[in-house]
Computed example of a mutant assay.
Amino acid sequence: MDFEEVIQRLKNSLSRQLPGKEAQMRMSPQPVDMRRFDTKLPSNYRKGAVLILIYPQEKQAFFPLIKRPEYIGVHSGQIAFPGGKMDEGDENEVFTALREAEEEVAVNASKVEVLGRMSDLFIPASNFLVSPVIGYVDHIPEFVPEEREVQRIISARVADIVSPEIQKKTILEIGNQIKLDTPYFEVEKEMVWGATAMILGEFIELLEKGK
């Protein structure tokens, strides 16, 4: 999908009401953990933000995904957007997304043109309320992975994400007792599922509505 077209579509759709829950649900594991959409969050929830950074490569639109390293934790080895926890000194979620992207993949935050925010999504497993931020740059960034937080950087093409060929389903076994019917995107042989896939579900809807 052409870079300029993607940016224009996103500008159009972000000026309107966001698709929200309905779009996120399309890529949600089943059965749905409805705590994601509860208006009353746990009193100790944490705030975070991620950045969907659109950039041009041979006139096509791309964005980076990262693979988390293996560690003892709920998101070990998973594919995600650059992002992380909101610090006490952060001005807002946009600041958090830009700061974290700079720390994790060396994005020059001062060069990013912010288009807007998508719908927040609560992640019960890690107790985070995540705010996805969309921005763009007019060049290919010189990504550098932060070794402790990023195992690999994946350049995902927007045209591939909207293609039905990479949208798949599988049964995921979580622990010994939980089985989830899980939709996912297969990107460079990696499984993009869970909250990241749900955010991409709304992103795709924004592209469609922005025509």
Rank of each mutant, 00 (worst) to 15 (best):
V192R: 00
Y136G: 06
V74Q: 11
V150I: 13
F143N: 08
E146S: 13
Y55S: 05
Q30N: 12
L200F: 00
P29S: 13
G194R: 01
V162W: 00
L65F: 14
K111A: 11
D38R: 14
G210L: 01
A109H: 14
S163K: 15
R26T: 15
F63V: 07
S119K: 11
F203D: 00
N108F: 07
V133C: 02
R9E: 03
D2H: 11
F62G: 05
D87L: 15
F128H: 14
E113P: 00
L206A: 02
R16K: 13
A109W: 11
H139C: 07
D33C: 04
S43D: 14
N108V: 12
G77I: 09
K209N: 09
S119M: 10
T39K: 15
L18K: 13
T170R: 13
K168D: 05
E22M: 01
F185H: 12
S126H: 07
L18Q: 06
E100S: 08
V107C: 09
N108L: 11
G135D: 12
M1D: 06
V187H: 09
V32Y: 03
I72M: 11
D138C: 07
L18Y: 12
K209P: 00
N176V: 04
T196A: 07
K21G: 00
K11H: 06
N44P: 02
S110Y: 07
M198K: 03
E4R: 04
E4W: 04
V158T: 02
G84D: 02
V162E: 07
E70H: 10
E190F: 02
G201D: 08
